[in-house]
């Protein structure tokens, strides 16, 4: 019998590893649906090591890239300066006009209130590494639980939504970009208030899926987070519609979206130190979120 077991050892180990991996995948899936997870020391150890190592490796390349970028920037800084002065003057005129319009419509107070609701603590973080697989779109951040980051917290830049923290260690975090196929953000067309889901294509683009008349969504429309879905606060820019597939016979229409944030060259991002009440309910053991706004918001993995 022992000889039989010895002979079957490799096939049994092979099958055992397959079963272990399958169980692990489903456990991970459940954790992602609950907004991600805080990694234990033995699973997060590699990310802890990777964070400083990747920063050291990236530093010289970043330095060369920075010098080159600064040099190029200097070449046309004068022209850009003039253009910016003109732009500022135009924007100031526009701001005055908009303020007048808001006062006239009595909405100024509501807008100020909404801004106050959205103001929440943020933690700056550096992107120190990206995933090497073409099938996933994630980044490694140099901030972790020690800095207040928790799984399920939104990541943004000044441009707009970047993604969601999916795993954390004491000093590092893994964030899934909205470009990832697993990402789904509840979005709202700012002009028409048409709602839909923004999904990542996994290939660097976004798709806005919506129902209703095709003319509710037009190229150039800005899509923002809607506030539903349980992951993102309301009113953060997701992207701009670049084309609408109006010929689709399905009930669900699709429009291509250009991300508002520059997701292909991410360097510095901000983690909103906030988790929606939905995620807090799904992860009751984790510390309470800070700066929770009155309105909970959008987007989650399907």
């Amino acid at each position: 019998m022992s000889e039989l077991l010895h002979r079957l050892r490799l096939p049994l180990l092979f099958a055992g590893l397959g079963v272990l991996a399958t169980i692990s995948i489903f456990a991970d899936r459940r954790a992602l649906e609950a907004g991600g997870r805080d990694l234990s020391w033995w699973t997060g150890g590699l990310l802890e090591i990777a964070r400083p190592a990747q920063r050291v490796i990236s530093a010289p390349i970043d330095a060369v890239r920075g010098v080159w970028r600064d040099y190029l920037a200097l070449l046309d800084v004068r022209e850009e300066n003039e253009a910016l002065r003109l732009e500022i003057a135009e924007l100031q005129e526009e701001a005055v006009a908009l303020r007048e319009a808001l006062v006239a419509s009595g909405n100024l107070e509501q807008v100020a209130e909404m801004r106050a609701q959205l103001e929440m603590p943020m933690a700056p973080a550096e992107v120190v590494g990206q995933d090497v697989s073409p099938w996933f779109r994630t980044v490694l951040l140099d901030r972790g639980r020690a800095d207040g980051l928790r799984a399920g917290m939104p990541i943004v830049t000044e441009g707009g939504v970047v993604g969601l923290v999916t795993a954390t260690t004491p000093h590092a975090a893994r964030a899934m970009l909205i470009l990832d196929r697993q990402s789904a953000v509840d979005g709202l067309v700012q002009r028409s208030r048409s709602r839909g889901i923004v999904r990542g294509t996994g290939e660097g683009g976004l798709v806005f899926e919506f129902t209703g008349p095709a003319d509710q969504v037009q190229p150039g429309d800005l899509v923002i987070t809607s506030g539903y879905g349980g992951a993102y606060p309301k009113g953060i820019r997701i992207g701009e519609i670049i084309s609408v597939d109006s010929s689709a016979p399905d009930l669900v229409r699709r429009a291509a979206l250009r991300p508002a944030a520059s997701l292909d060259r991410l360097e510095r991002v901000f983690a909103l130190l906030w988790r929606s009440p939905t995620l807090e309910l799904l992860a009751p053991d984790s510390p309470p979120s800070v700066g929770a706004p009155a309105q909970a918001q959008a987007g989650a993995a399907p």
């Binding site: 991996a21 399958t22 692990s24 995948i25 991970d28 995933d131 697989s133 996933f136």
Partner: peptide
Amino acid sequence: DLLAGAPLGLHVL
């Protein structure tokens, strides 16, 4: 899997 942000076990499988 851990570094790629993939579900743990996907690369193994």
